[in-house]
């Protein structure tokens, strides 16, 4: 198994996911299976293959530089849990 239970806990923490302690071993084994499959694919010789960033053979469309977006602050802030003086209010993030 390529992933240890600590790895799983760390990944969950980085992604801010709460997982049950009971489930950690199962996650570790499932995720390891995926990584093992990737490892198996790694054996294919890809020396002359360009890495693919996107499955579609298309290129990014660009928009003109127009600041056309209206101000909809009131609408957006009506669904925010805590707002004051136009600011979104969150728990203190520095000491």
């Amino acid at each position: 198994m390529s992933l240890k239970t600590e790895d799983v806990k760390n990944i969950a923490h980085l992604a801010r996911l709460a997982i049950d302690d009971d489930a950690v071993t199962d996650y570790a084994s499932d995720l390891s299976n995926i990584l093992d499959l990737v490892e198996q694919m790694n054996q294919v010789d890809t020396d002359n293959v360009q890495p693919m960033a996107h499955p579609m053979d298309a290129q990014q469309r660009l928009r003109d530089d127009d600041a056309s977006e209206p101000d909809q602050r009131d609408k957006f802030q009506s669904i925010a849990p805590d707002v004051e003086n136009g600011l979104y209010r969150v728990p203190k993030v520095i000491e």
């Binding site: 004051e84 600011l87 979104y88 969150v90 993030v93």
Partner: peptide
């Protein structure tokens, strides 16, 4: 903005 609200952070 850390100095707008006591114990909370304001985000712009």
């Amino acid at each position: 903005l850390h100095d707008q609200f006591p114990g909370q952070t304001g985000v712009d």
